[in-house]
Design a protein around this nucleic acid. Sequence first.
RNA 1: UGGGGCGUGGCCAAGUGGUAAGGCAUCGGGUUUUGAUCCCGUGUACCGCAGGUUCGAAUCCUGCCGCCCCAGCCA
Length: 560
Amino acid sequence: MNDALPRDFIRQIIHSDLETGKHTAIVTRFPPEPNGYLHIGHVMSICLNFGVAEETGGRTFLRFDDTNPGKEREEYVEAIERDVRWLGFDWDERLTHTSDYFDALYDYAEQLTRNGLAYVDSLSADEIRAHRGTLTEAGKNSPYRDRPVEDNLDLFRRMRAGEFADGEHVLRAKIDMASPNINLRDPALYRIRHVAHQHTGDKWCIYPMYDFAHTMSDALEQITHSLCTLEFEDHRPLYDWLLDQLKPEHRPRQIEFSRLNLAYAITSKRKLNALVDDGVVSGWDDPRMPTIAGLRRRGYPASALREFVKRGGVTKKDKLIEMAVLENCIREELDFSAPRRMAVLQPLKVVLTNYPQGQVEMMPSSNHPNRPEFGTREVPFSGELFIEQDDFMEDAPKKFFRLKPDGEVRLRNGYIIRCDEVIKNKAGEVVELRCSYDPDTRSGTGTSDRKVKGTIHWVSAAHALPAEVRLYDRLFTVPDPNAAEDFMAVLNPDSLATARVMLEPSLAELGVGEAVQFERLGYFCVDSVDHSAKAPAFNRIVTLRDSWAKVEQQAIAQRG
RNA sequence: UGGGGCGUGGCCAAGUGGUAAGGCAUCGGGUUUUGAUCCCGUGUACCGCAGGUUCGAAUCCUGCCGCCCCAGCCA
């Protein structure tokens, strides 16, 4: 793939900081809150944060932003680590938690308080909200705003000591209740929460708020560039205010970029959760989910995801990227790396009437037409085969290059056959084709160089490996389900179809994580959860591009 | 009606005063024992709109319009 280094505005800033000597090494961080699974949107943040460090010889922290105990779980920590690692990034020993810094954070809070820049407010949450004002009206000072420093210190210490109940007091920064930026209207720094923390246990009953904890954690980790999404733009003045007041040795800089939104997908944690809870999908790793776990189980290669993010770019513009971009990345990677195999999704029996009774030939078949180093495999061929139902049409349009009555077609890696007779059941459905093969046309060794227009795939009936294949499609019917009034109302009812299929026998050896191309159909992989030797289960990763689909529609339309 | 952002072809995106890269998609064509891949070709982009500065503007200035974000003791 093309490896020209992207030069988005963030990388421009970073390179400039390196050139001017402002920094000698870049330090970034990917700071998820362990309260859910990572999704495609996070892939961008991960690639950006780890990417810029990697490109410049810097380093990146994987920091769990765990300042809200009760909503965070160890299960998510493990999943996040697995996902980041799977994407191809490594944090070495730089795995941290915001909770690792609770002591230091507390000291910073006391410092602020001592300097008269923070105070303990005893208003209720509702009262604080009322005092905050609105978007267009200034807020009002809390009656506790001018509490003496000593009282604030005493109260804050007692908050920490557990003398108060949840909500009784809160530590607030003393900034400006009239600021047009609501984040500067004396934001809360610490709240009381008598909840055991997954890491610190019962040591604390007060926990720092995001803005405070994140800013100072960045400083403590000596982060040089704190990259986050656009919605935190309004928080930057607070970020900078904290750094201005506390003057840590290292001053990080926050830079915001726009989220990556994928068409026909949803990334809201709440909505994703609803899909799981309502059983719309089988779980967080359902192959239709935009979670990293889902994408992985679907069979999307990590490298393709990285490429996708790269193509999307880093900007500040709201974007909704077409699914086609992602699919192109997937196909590009898989076309290069996936061995070819044959499988029939909708079997139609074909009997070769002139093929020697009981004969079986092993047909050498290329594993990759464009990469001879992939070698070949032997595929059993016999007088009874399955072909795809779609590859036969009784009343075919002119441009139908497949099998039709009295027509010829090439069996991939096999022979040219002619359809002599169509057998139907009582319902008039085609259930079997009687064909004759041309012995002179064996692939590779045939004495005839006769050409036919079409080539179709097949599987020998006696050797076929029955399996279940899940055919996935987009989860929603509209490009921007986030904008839908009710996202549950725009679910695609056909996002999953399962089929009983016939596979070429070599597919029995395919392992989890290995993707193959079922020729003419698409890319598939073994399902990491439901697959077993007795009950093989495959997932369709993505279809092949299908220009015939368009031609077919036109042809059908023309026939009226 | 406060503040902060953003607006370049269908979707992304380069471009940072000198006369609009590239990718994806689309539509043609070539090669092909995958209607795949690959290879060619394909868009008059009034650079949100209107003014202005300039020899010259997507790039600078002014005004307007549109979209997104913010009133958690969530992150």
